[in-house]
């Protein structure tokens, strides 16, 4: 059996797997621009709890408890903190995805898209997914100390706010454009 024989079989197998993966959520879909607001709300939700999460992960709290509480309590707290860090990492990913989704909606509804921006976003998405999984795996397996997540959450929070402002601007522009179009139409009919 030659290599080319297996190459075709492998390629067809790959195509079928990719197709099965791509149609897996098609039935559940149907969300439109109307969902954008809900998405934005969802994205902001996790960042709202940032102060509590910061408190839960604060190094000073842990040091104090390690000194005062027995070893098993300290161990349990460490596990809880790890769980909190994991949950927060998931929440950050949800924020990232909802913002990404917003970007996709904008691309979908734009009359022109720039291939460079689209590929760049795809690359960033893949890179984020990879890094996220690596951090999550290491954190989950206890191979990594509980990280400082402040910088990340601030960044996502900032992006959410910027996106909200941008979407408001978009809405205003759309209203303005509609008004202009209707006034042009009116003038056109007068001329005619």
């Amino acid at each position: 059996m030659s290599l080319f024989f297996y190459l075709f079989f492998g390629l067809v197998g790959l195509l079928l797997v990719l197709f099965a993966w791509s149609v897996r959520n098609l039935g559940k879909r149907g969300k439109t621009i109307a969902d954008a607001g809900a998405l934005e709300e969802c994205g902001r939700g996790h960042v709202v709890h940032l102060p509590q999460i910061r408190q839960a992960l604060a190094e000073t709290d842990y040091s104090y408890l390690s000194q005062k509480a027995p070893a098993f309590v300290s161990r349990r707290i460490r596990q809880e903190r790890r769980r909190v860090a994991l949950a927060y990492l998931s929440a950050l990913r949800a924020d990232f995805q909802s913002l990404l989704r917003m970007a996709k909606i904008i691309a979908r509804l734009s009359p022109e898209v720039v291939a460079l921006h689209e590929f760049e976003r795809l690359r960033l998405t893949v890179a984020f997914a990879w890094r996220y999984q690596m951090v999550r795996l290491q954190l989950g397996a206890g191979l990594m100390p509980i990280p400082r997540l402040d910088g990340l959450s601030d960044l996502v929070s900032g992006l959410s706010v910027r996106m909200e402002t941008a979407m408001n601007e978009l809405g205003e522009r759309a209203v303005l454009a509609a008004e202009m179009a209707s006034s042009f139409d009116g003038r056109g009919s007068d001329v005619a």
Binding site: L109, S110, V114, R121, L124, L159, R162, L170, R173
Partner: peptide
Amino acid sequence: MLSGVAYCTLAPEINFRL
């Protein structure tokens, strides 16, 4: 559809943030 300006403004901004 949105205006073409919307994409040109937002896409690079989002990409930079990401």
